[in-house]
Design a binder for these strands. Structure first.
Lengths: 192, 192
DNA sequence: TTTCACCTATCTATCAGTAGGTAGATAATT
DNA sequence: AATTATCTACCTACTGATAGATAGGTGAAA
């Protein structure tokens, strides 16, 4: 997590904020933390983002953009590859022992301003829509088998991912991989 | 959430702290919030709990005690009743639009002192053990049917509950009930 | 007479945010 | 081409609010 010379200061601030939010939570990080991490004064951060809320919104928008990019990149791949692509987001999160931004900000929801709440709801909805689509396609193509509605199955899988990155901070880090593989295994159609 | 005249001040402080942690997160609540809620000065809270960490630990211990009490109360009941008892914890959480204390503190984990981290790990482990036991018993008695290891299935169910109280703050509040009922339905043995 | 459960008053640290200044790059005007 | 004006991306210095925590005092109960 270092400032790439090709990145603008603005993007570097967002990147550092993102890591801090997912490591410690929105209320536990300060402009000072970012200031130290990238070597500019806290007042200069306000030049790029007038308020902490503005920075929070920009951070979530960054996640939405990356999600859309990943979705587009996997558009012509198989449902399984798409699902594995979705899981790879959480694998990256877990490898840093951080948590998902949706989970982090959902617990802080009642302490942040409306702009952040609204943007977070957009992100959550997009994740849910995408996973639902993947499952629908997978079922239609007999790549996946499950009994409940695709949106319900998507909620089950997303909640598994969202919470295991949190819970495995307390139990065992390996539990993340265990769940990820179990979910994929259970989705496979039984060949009997 | 009012001070019951039968409760000690100490217990009232813990109760208010618990609600604040699960509503806003550990770093977003202050002694001032408790002070206002129960009508004593912030300095007086320090009489009962020298530090915020002490209060956090006591709050988690309260959850452990209530978990043990619930477990004991349901000891002779059916596996399904036990599982429904476990789910009732999250139903209560969701009815207040709050989140599970484990999820709340897991996201804040890297900002709290070791004492809180340790106590939280104890709570998480006890939850996991209990749900694993319920599932094992349910499988042995043919009340539940599932393919994976009981501990793995417990992780799947706990993560569903832990995250749906967070995620349904962003999607639909009804999604909580949807998942709860789906999980119970899927556990029932197929009678074909 | 000691303990309990509070109080007032205060401390230091940190927070997000603001005012106003500046060096250097870029654009506009002469 | 030379000069002038404006913009960008920072800076120093500061504010008011709030945080957790501490010292020392008080009245009532044991």
């Amino acid at each position: 997590m270092q400032k790439n010379s090709l990145m603008t200061t603005r993007d570097t601030i967002i990147q550092v904020a993102d890591h801090l939010i997912r490591d410690k939570g929105f209320n536990a990080f300060s402009f000072k933390d970012i200031s130290i991490a990238i070597g500019i004064k806290t007042a200069s951060i306000h030049y790029h983002f007038p308020t902490k809320t503005d920075l929070g919104i920009a951070t979530i928008k960054g996640h939405i953009e990356r999600l859309e990019a990943l979705k587009a990149e996997l558009e012509n791949k198989s449902p399984l590859t798409k699902l594995e692509g979705f899981f790879s987001i959480y694998s990256a999160v877990k490898s840093e022992n951080k948590v998902c931004i949706v989970g982090s900000l959902a617990t802080d929801l009642h302490t942040v301003e409306e702009g952040i709440q609204k943007e977070l709801k957009v992100l959550a909805e997009k994740i849910l829509e995408w996973v639902t689509e993947i499952l629908e396609e997978g079922k239609a193509k007999n790549a996946f088998a499950f009994q409940v509605a695709p949106r319900t199955k998507a909620l089950l899988i997303i909640t598994n991912m969202l919470a295991i990155v949190q819970l495995s901070r307390l139990t065992k880090a390996d539990d993340f991989t265990l769940l990820k593989e179990t979910i994929i295994q259970e989705l496979k159609p039984k060949t009997e």
